[in-house]
Amino acid sequence: MSSFFIAGHEFHSRLFTGTGKYASANTMMDSLIASKSELVTLSLRRMDLKQQTDNILQPLQQHCMKLLPNTSGARTAKEAVFAAELAREALETNWVKLEIHPDPRYLMPDGMETLLAAEELIKKGFVVMPYVHADPVLCKRLEEVGCQCVMPLGSPIGSNMGLASRPFLEIIIEQSTVPVIVDAGIGAPSDAALALEIGADAVLVNTAMAVARQPAQMGKAFRLAVEAGRMAYESGLGERRVQAQATSPLTEFIGALS
C-alpha cells in the first residue's frame, strides 16, 4: 500500500483518528495503537483550575503520533484563528484541523467562515486541514487559497451514518489535487473501506472506535478495512453493470441432453 504526503509529511497509515469519547486514556491508547494511526486530533478548552486532567499528550508523543489540534468550539473565522494560535502554542505545531460549526445540534460546518479563516491562517504560516461539507466548489476554493488537504464529511459528526455524501465525495476526489480525507460519520469499517475504494486518500475516525464495546479490536478492524479499501483502489475495481456478464464460458453442453 502506498504512503501519501500532507505538507511534505509522509503518512504510511491512511487512518487518522480522534481522541474524544474514550472511557479512559488507557482504552484510548490501546485502540489507537491497534489502529496504527499516525495522526491524532486533539481539542483545546479553558483549563479546569479545580482539578488536574489526564495527561494524554505524553503517551501519544511516546508513540510518535503526530498531533493535530482542532478549532472545535469556534463559531466564527475570528474565533477559529484565535483557537489555532492557542493550539500552536499549546502543542507546538503549525498544523490545524479547521472546524467552525456554529450550530450545536447538527454541527454543520460553516463554509464561508471556514474559507475566511483558512485564508488568514495560511498567511500566518499554518498547515490548514479544513473540515467542510462535501461541497466540491468549496473544496476547490480551499485548495486554491492554499489548504494542504480537504476534509469533507461523510455524514454529520458522531452520526455513524457512513458516506451519505458519496456522490459529492466522488466529485471532490476527482477534482482535487490535494489529499482528500473523509471525516465525520464513518460508523463502521465498511464505511472506511468504501471511502478508500472510491479514492479518498484517508479517513478520520473517532466515535466508531471510541464507543465500541472493544475499542482496541475496533481499532484493528478499521486498520484492516482502510488497508483493504486502499489496496482495492490501487488494484483497480471493475465497472458496475446493470446486465450480467458471465464469469464462465457459456457452452452448449447442457443442451446436448435434449
Binding site: 481522541t19 474514550y22 483545546l44 479553558r46 483549563m47 494524554i56 472545535s72 492557542l86 502543542l91
Partner: peptide, 10 residues
Amino acid sequence: VFIFESIAGG
C-alpha cells in the same frame, strides 16, 4: 488572563 489546555477531541 485565560489559560487553555489540550484535551481529547475529534
